[in-house]
Simulated scan of single mutants.
Amino acid sequence: MKPFCFANGEIIATEKATIHPMDLGLIRGYGIFDFFRTVNHKPLFLEDYLDRFTASAAKTFLTLKYSREELRTIISELVEKNDLEAGGMRMMLSGGLSDNHFSPAEGKLFIFAESLIFPSEKKYNEGVKLLSLEYIRPIADIKTTNYALAVWHSEGWKRQGAEDVLYHLNGVISESSRSNFFIVKDGQVITPGKDILLGITRKNLMNLAGNVQVRPITLQEALEADEAFISSTTKVLLPVTQIDDHKIGTGKPGPVTIDLLQRFKELEKEISY
């Protein structure tokens, strides 16, 4: 965590940020957040993230007292004050202090600057393993702070050498716990469009790939895919070469996956310079 954050309506030392212990964010796990990266001190795809954050606030009935322009100004000041050349920024809006300890109230806005740790080069070169899990995130189109199941389940991933889980219900895949999911079959890129968070990295990868099919993907289809990968802000695009005990394709990152990752890196350079 970087030394300065936005809390209590001002930029302060991060260590001084506080939240009331009866805030719904703590006692009910009710709140929203969003997370984006900076490259060369510039926030990547900021307008897309602001779109999603403000929409999430409206959908969860949480009051966001700051305009987009005010949020841009705060973010710019935090980037400069933390000298955040390449890092992450986390916007959080808590559920607030509720009279009945249940209904959404006026939440508290935090914006934190963070260091980033990307997956290792080995994971990009060799791919990762996912574990299938029958589950759908509640209100999946909103980036809520409720990750209780994933956090609890993560201890099992480590023991089984997995990167994450792959959610599915009745044999139909939705997403990973923190990433969107894609497969490639006969050169065609395919991704689910239901019961998912509409990822910003997902959106930009789809633009780069062109002609992406958005449709239900069965777990069986994923196992029979030529390639698979997950996408997120902190992973960009990470090849998936194994689901449970089943090897995907050749068991190595495929050409479509490798090409998309390289093209996304080029896009980042274009935007940030």
Rank of each mutant, 00 (worst) to 15 (best):
R68F: 00
E69C: 01
T73A: 14
I74N: 11
I75Q: 12
V79W: 05
K81D: 09
A86D: 13
R90F: 11
M91E: 11
S94I: 07
S98N: 14
D99Q: 14
F102Y: 15
S103W: 12
S103T: 14
G107D: 10
F112K: 03
A113W: 01
S115R: 13
S120V: 13
S120A: 15
S120T: 15
E121D: 15
E126Q: 14
L130P: 10
L131W: 10
I136Y: 15
I139P: 11
D141A: 13
D141Q: 14
Y147V: 02
A150H: 14
V151W: 07
V151K: 12
W152D: 07
S154C: 05
K158N: 05
R159Y: 03
Q160S: 11
Q160Y: 09
V165R: 07
Y167K: 04
L169N: 05
N170V: 00
V172S: 03
I173K: 04
E175K: 00
S176D: 08
S177I: 00
S179I: 01
N180F: 00
F181I: 06
F182L: 04
V184P: 04
D186L: 00
Q188D: 09
V189C: 08
P192V: 02
P192A: 07
P192I: 01
G193P: 05
G199L: 02
L208D: 12
A209M: 10
